[in-house]
Design a protein around this nucleic acid. Structure first.
Lengths: 133, 133
DNA sequence: CATAAAGTTGACGTTTACGTAAGCTAAACG
DNA sequence: CGTTTAGCTTACGTAAACGTCAACTTTATG
């Protein structure tokens, strides 16, 4: 029944990370690959976790923040997790993300405005790329 | 006519950063405070830039990425900036941010789902905080 | 069986974004 | 005029997140 487990290299290719990264995440208790002798075997669960880790990273969360969130997504992976704590951590992250979303919309609007200005300047000046007054 | 310039401490209080941070940003050419003898004086423009810097940081952009974007917002601050380059850098950042926005919406939806599940589990179990099967 | 391929464990190196401490200067105050 | 107070420069220290390298083991292969 050993199914759907992947070697470290397959993981690296699938997620575009290095072996070092995967071992580092394991050392930080973000992933828990099983062992076949020496070698690591990554399960479907590990892949789900890695996907969340990489997503969290793109949002600028630290690995430690991500680790706490993973406890919410995978309650029971470790025995001693307090669900209520995971939920409250999750609520804080959600609030974070919603704030970010609002700020991001504002920033996007700003940037669009600036770009519009820049593009109009480019069209208006005969010498593309030169500084404008 | 020297108006609206702020000392380093006023800046720190206004933006909740340390003097070290402002000097560091200057050393990286993100800010260009004038000098009154030794002392730095931060203009309205510096404050606008700092605001953008801090915003960019919250989105996880590196200071170098932010510096390039600032060139778009303040074309002409330096003499040698290519507007067309600034615009194209800006377009890339905008694309980044829009991708982030989409992914963020997805992540928020996911997290809400997980939170809903967690909260239902909490209500259903008599012993709050215990792990559920 | 020799060796190449894939994986493993240390352990030290690197970059980013500042923190922190030492020692100097200049204005302001009693 | 001595001394806080605010600011300055220079320089070393630090945490996070890996990169890189050395040395070893295990598995596959001609």
């Amino acid at each position: 029944m050993s199914e759907q487990t992947m070697t470290i290299r397959e993981m690296c290719d699938a997620f575009d990370v290095t072996p070092r990264t995967l071992r580092f995440y394991e050392s930080k208790e973000l992933l828990f690959p099983q062992r076949d002798g020496q070698k690591r075997l990554f399960s479907k669960r590990d892949r789900a976790r890695l996907k969340l880790i990489l997503r969290g990273k793109r949002f600028g969360f630290s690995l430690e923040e991500i680790r706490q969130l993973l406890d919410l997504y995978h309650v029971g992976d470790q025995q001693h997790i307090q669900l209520s704590r995971s939920v409250s951590v999750g609520r804080e992250r959600l609030a974070d993300m919603e704030r970010r979303q609002a700020e991001l919309s504002e920033a996007i609007a700003d940037l669009k405005g600036q770009l519009g200005w820049g593009e109009r300047m480019l069209k208006a000046t005969p010498l593309h790329g030169e500084a404008a007054e």
